[in-house]
């Protein structure tokens, strides 16, 4: 007998005569009552010792350039809004064509991506790796991650965010949930920022609703 059949057989035998518990009645994706989603998001991202800046759409390119500071080589996903990089001065920009090796990425000091969702309560950014966010390795190997999030992408809490994830999963895309820079608590359960992922997370939160064109 195959192990598959054996395991499934043992499961069925174990459950013979068991009370089958129905799924709980659960309202999925219920919006959280967060009065100030933007304010809370900023506060909670800062809690992780990430950098958060609120910028107007027309200030975004300059803010990206500032955030990248003295980085020589920047990698960006193929679908990134070109205007966001228009104020860069001197840095070499590699647009990922899918062929950059891990070593190539390791030679990039920074990455700029968009995001899919921002979660206020937990201060989390969710990437669903659409073309403006790129494949997973891009936002992982470089040491600085500049991430552009629009206010309209913010939700109150985790449930709304999980609901939004389904479209990405159905499209076969992975997702990465990022809450601050990489960190560890493995030494005496004391939090230290900066292990294998980007050691600096710089979030640019783009205002909307001020009558100006959103960059996307």
């Amino acid at each position: 007998m195959s192990s598959r059949a054996a395991i499934l057989g043992r499961v069925s035998a174990a459950l013979a005569g068991a009370d089958r518990v129905p799924p709980p009645r659960q309202e999925y994706g219920a919006p959280a009552a967060v009065p100030d989603v933007v304010g809370l998001f900023v506060e909670r991202v800062e809690d992780y010792r990430a950098v958060v800046e609120q910028v107007a759409p027309q200030e975004l390119a300059a803010a990206v350039a500032r955030a990248l500071g003295g980085t020589d080589r920047v990698v960006v996903p193929p679908g990134l809004e070109g205007a966001w990089l228009s104020a860069l001065d001197g840095a070499e920009v590699l647009v990922d064509d899918g062929d950059l090796s891990p070593d190539d990425l390791d030679r990039c000091g920074a990455v700029v991506t968009a995001a899919a969702v921002g979660i206020a309560t937990t201060g989390t950014i969710v990437l669903d790796h659409r073309p403006d966010q790129g494949r997973r390795a891009l936002s992982l190997v470089p040491d600085l991650h500049v991430c552009v999030v629009r206010e309209s992408q913010l939700v109150g809490d985790v449930p709304e965010s999980v609901t939004l994830l389904r479209a990405a999963v159905d499209a076969g895309r992975p997702s990465t949930w990022i809450s601050g820079p990489s960190a560890t608590s493995d030494i005496e359960l004391e939090r230290v920022e900066g292990v294998h992922g980007p050691r600096t997370l710089h979030v640019l939160l783009v205002r909307d609703g001020d009558g100006l064109q959103s960059p996307a």
Binding site: D47, I119, T121, T122, P174, T176, W177, S179, S182
Partner: peptide, 9 residues
């Protein structure tokens, strides 16, 4: 923590 630094799906 409110959320761990990284979750991958």
């Amino acid at each position: 923590e409110r959320m761990n630094p990284y979750t991958s799906t």
